[in-house]
């Protein structure tokens, strides 16, 4: 794990253990800005889904986690990036229950509902990057 002085953490995601570490780090950061217990749980769950997607669909990648500020509120921003196959049909991927195979197809659509901001940047053949933010209330 590398932490710069500005408080950005970057973790590799290349194994199941890494996914656990991402969950734990997101939890610690969320506690740090005093997110409510329910909001912590929502954010950590979303992070778990997205980190798993990075590993399973993207092959491997990284998670960047940082504390952000806006208009007097603090938030946690988490970015999950990989250089995998990308998502050909984003609308389809975001449809609850749609999976390209094996899963329940709840990861992406569910994660979106669990956070305040959700953004996907993907290109077939180049990779996928999903950014989420959860703000303190």
């Amino acid at each position: 794990m590398s932490t710069s002085a500005t408080g950005v953490d970057e973790l590799p995601i290349s194994s199941g253990d890494d996914v656990v570490r991402v969950r734990q780090l997101v939890r610690t950061r969320a506690q740090g800005i005093r997110l409510s217990l329910v909001d912590q749980t929502k954010l950590v769950t979303a992070a778990s889904e997205l980190a798993r997607n990075t590993l399973v669909h993207g092959g491997s990648g990284t998670a960047r986690i940082e504390v952000v500020q806006r208009a007097g509120r603090s938030g946690i921003r988490a970015v999950f990036s990989d250089e995998g196959p990308g998502i050909p049909d984003l609308d389809l991927a975001l449809t609850a229950g749609w999976t390209s195979g094996g899963g329940l197809g709840l990861g992406l659509s569910g994660a979106k509902r669990l956070v305040d901001e959700f953004d996907i940047d993907t290109e077939v053949g180049r990779g996928t990057s999903v950014t989420v933010v959860k703000w303190s209330r």
């Binding site: 217990l37 329910v38 912590q40 749980t41 929502k42 769950t45 889904e49 609850a96 329940l104 709840l106 659509s109 569910g110 994660a111 509902r113 669990l114």
Partner: peptide, 12 residues
């Protein structure tokens, strides 16, 4: 409770 609330939101 927090887990249950989250599961409902996740759609599981």
């Amino acid at each position: 409770p927090a887990v249950a609330i989250t599961l409902v939101e996740l759609g599981l």
